[in-house]
Amino acid sequence: MTRFHRLFSALCWACALLPGAVMLLLIGFLLRQGWGSLDLHLLFGDTPPLDALFRFVPVWDGIWPACFGTLCVVVLAGVISIPLGILCGIHLSEFAQGRFRDILSFCVDLLAGMPSILMGLFGFALILFLRHTLLPDVGTGLLLSGFCLGLLVLPYMVNATYTSLSSLPQDLRLLGPSLGLNHMQSIRHILLPSAGKGIVSGLVLSLGRAAEDTAVIMLTGAVANAGMPRSLFDKYEALPFYIYTTAAEYQTPEDLNRGFGAALVLLVMTTGLFLAAHLLHQAMERRWRRG
């Protein structure tokens, strides 16, 4: 091996270690700062946990409402962006042609590059508009946040579906038609399952992005002490927003550590979502392979 080769492979090796190292460092730091405050009191304050979970007794001094709020907006964003994104990706890869496809995929890229604060402003402006025209009573809330977050992560879903479908080998594409399957059958039974892995990575990326985003929810309905939301149109609390306000306004070191504890909880929540996504994918893949 020449010296250059050795240098290059050493560099690659070092860079491959980097993400792992950063990850460990980050988690280690979070654990050190937040572990001490991570207990039921952080979650539920002085309310008995079972009462808070099952009897909806208000929680005043804990982050449970924020966890619940975040879960709600992520699920809403997913409900909006996952089906739309997958369908749009299928359209781009399988049906759209020529210039129309170029224009569509350019729009998707534009949307992907949109800063999230703009999406928040869009939601805010939308609600102002609605208030002045059709619906004088509406305000910001869960549904609006979920909608805007869904728009924010939509391009990730579209691109993940589009790229993983269109990078399938040509032979696999021809296989369905050559057997006499129609286009829909080919997509449903051969192409989509084969592209499943890429689509699930897009899903994980989207869910993570929706869970962590603060700019959008700040402008569309997240507030500091809303408690549990009572309906889709209610204001709500959210973990990233809680972390943000804690970091901005803490008065004692313990306050700040509660912020770190909340960050850990957010991490656990997103990891749980990823895990759920992977389990779902595995189950679907098993069904596909076994029949």
């Binding site: 032979d171 696999l172 296989l175 392979r289």
Partner: peptide, 8 residues
Amino acid sequence: SPNVLPLS
């Protein structure tokens, strides 16, 4: 070229 489905 042999072209099997990625299935059993």
